[in-house]
Nucleic acid binder design. Structure first.
Lengths: 191, 191
DNA sequence: GGTTAATTATTTATCGATTAATAAATGGAT
DNA sequence: ATCCATTTATTAATCGATAAATAATTAACC
């Protein structure tokens, strides 16, 4: 309070950051606008000066996260035979850098507000299309299955992190090429 | 009201059924005890006669669903080379017969009540162990990865159903052996 | 360059609605 | 008249949202 925080440059960003963390940890309903405000160091009604409703705040957080994940998948550069592996790594990196947002994206579909579901549906449509397009362009066989596989492991990782059940994703530790390309291991032995 | 429903034999079961449907559709927080009561045709405080808290009701619903899914996976009988496929089918069947409960199980981990998360963690531990054990006993190679794969596709299916995004799981339509055994397709070409 | 006006940033106070939970009452069957 | 199933009445807390008031910053003018 001494001389006004430097950080007050953009309160809106601060609110988005705090909201991302709280929404990711406590979900949509248990995160009150009062808690978001408190985390930023602002009064609760002030949040509504930037976001018309709580839902609008949630959607804004989601949108930012979505932009980030989409950009990450878009900017991956790798030769076709390494594309899956590299995109998997990009996802893991994103998870490390922006854990809140990534977990939020992977869990948002369970929030039963129609507007949120619609938004999430559109986001995953785009993500799916983007990944599928990249896999297809790289000449990867069965790209639709690989894309589903890729997204499904994203979901599994989110659950594993949320529940703190690391061995659900033990394959992440064992070998470094991860996230989706298990076809390498699968069938050179039928035991 | 005429002659008293025959179904009033076990109000508790009715409440569990109604709660499962409502929790699956509207989530934990947006499902009020009043709505559950109304769905059964009972007053709201009466729900608390059977379940001490709303949370206890949710956990009871979850427990019933969990028992069902665990039993389904346990009672699958198939030769080793068909085990994965058959268990996948068992899951799909369960999803058809008890959609609410299955979707609920796959989404419960996002509910931020500590008690619910603990319960869900324990449930998935058991499910993972059960599936892994069956795969291992059948001599399936890389059984840990296959188990992760199996569960991750369960999550993907849940999201696909919840968001009504069928093409996320297009592989379910294309060929009949589904849910986890993609190693068959994956690598007879590396391109 | 200091006084004032205008604009922006933020707070105080408060309302209305919802909801889980408790306790006491009713009523019929045995 | 007691036991069981169920209802009525009620409460206490929480939370999103609005409106009005105040503080702080910038801009303008003399």
């Amino acid at each position: 309070m001494t001389s006004k925080d430097d950080a007050s440059l953009n309160r809106k960003e601060q609110i988005l950051d705090a909201a991302a963390a709280l929404f990711a940890e406590n979900g949509y309903y248990k995160t009150t606008t009062a808690k978001v405000a408190e985390a930023v160091g602002v009064t609760q009604p002030y949040v509504f000066h930037f976001f018309k409703t709580k839902e609008a705040l949630y959607l804004a957080v989601l949108e930012r996260a979505y932009q980030r994940i989409l950009y990450a998948f878009t900017s991956v550069q790798a030769p076709p035979e390494l594309l899956q592996e590299t995109m998997g790594k990009a996802f893991i990196e994103l998870l490390a850098d922006h854990r809140n947002e990534i977990l939020l994206i992977m869990m948002a579909y369970t929030t039963p507000e129609p507007v949120i579901r619609d938004h999430t549906r559109r986001q995953f449509e785009m993500i799916y299309e983007r990944v599928l397009n990249r896999f297809t362009q790289a000449g990867i066989a069965d790209s639709e299955q690989k894309t589903s596989n890729f997204i499904s492991f994203g979901l599994l990782i989110a659950m594993s992190e949320t529940l703190d059940l690391p061995y659900l994703c033990r394959w992440r530790e064992k070998d470094s090429d991860s996230h989706q390309n298990h076809e390498n291991h699968d069938n050179h032995d039928s035991r």
